[in-house]
Amino acid sequence: MLPEDSEWEKVLWRKQEYPDNYIPQRLFLTSLRKNVNFSPYTYWPLVLLSCAITQHLATIFLFLAVFVRLKERLLDARILLYISMAIFLAGYMLWELLDYHYPEHGVSRIGRSKTFKYSLLLFLTLMGLSPVLKTLTAATSSDSIWALSACLFTVNALLADYSSSKPAPSRGRLTSVISMNAAISSSVVLASRLSDDLDVFVLILFSVQLFALFPILRHRLQVTPSILQAVLTFVLSASCIILTAPLSTTATWIYTAALIIVTFLAPGVLVWAQKYKNEIRGPWDVAVPRMS
């Protein structure tokens, strides 16, 4: 007959009157902690956070729609150039407004004159490189270009920085730099399939705005009221769907489905999946040393 459970001690040095396989039910796994740092997600805040991903996907779809329109001569390059310049000016004004209303601490400012100088330099560089870029992939088959472009845009979408807090001003995250490079590279190889120098120039200029400048603006916009985020997401999504609809019904449905899934379905799945979260902590975990 074994002694009372209360007499058993969780020690190894004392010889106890219990067999080695004795398990005291009242003490076993008492130090087990489940989901220690768990804070449950709610649906609408997640939808709002997913807007960043939706916006990014919408910009990719928007770019593809513009590329197809340029290639099929359904869009005049000059019109796109004016639209790009208008978007750039609107974006810059919005940036200045955000700077005024939501000043960022510790971020070094680039003067307006420098901004103008950099913009002009980029504009002229792209204009000068357009003839070179146009013949960049002349020896490559279109199938290879579409495949390469698809891969690069996938990399761009996967590695993009969707976080609501901006990384340290001095250094962007490596993944987001790779992401931007992938998108620009993809734009360059797609632009090289266009027939006119101006088309190439305008498309790459447009891609720089979408994949280099817009993500920076998007980060800044995440401190603004939620309604602005929602409106921007809706405008971008609607734009890409409206531009794609006349070109391909299949693509339109795919885009619509992708945007709806990312914005509304995925957050729902995450909220539902939380009930299966089972993070186990206990004395066996590597302790975190605390320094004074």
């Binding site: 969780k10 020690v11 190894l12 040095w13 004395p283 066996w284 040393p289 605390r290 320094m291 004074s292």
Partner: peptide
């Protein structure tokens, strides 16, 4: 340090246990 199985191996008068804190 009071980690894993360490608190089980010696009686209290032979060991001083501390949290992993400086």
């Amino acid at each position: 340090t009071r980690v894993g199985g360490v608190p089980e191996i010696l009686p209290e008068d032979m060991i001083s246990l501390a949290n992993p804190d400086e």
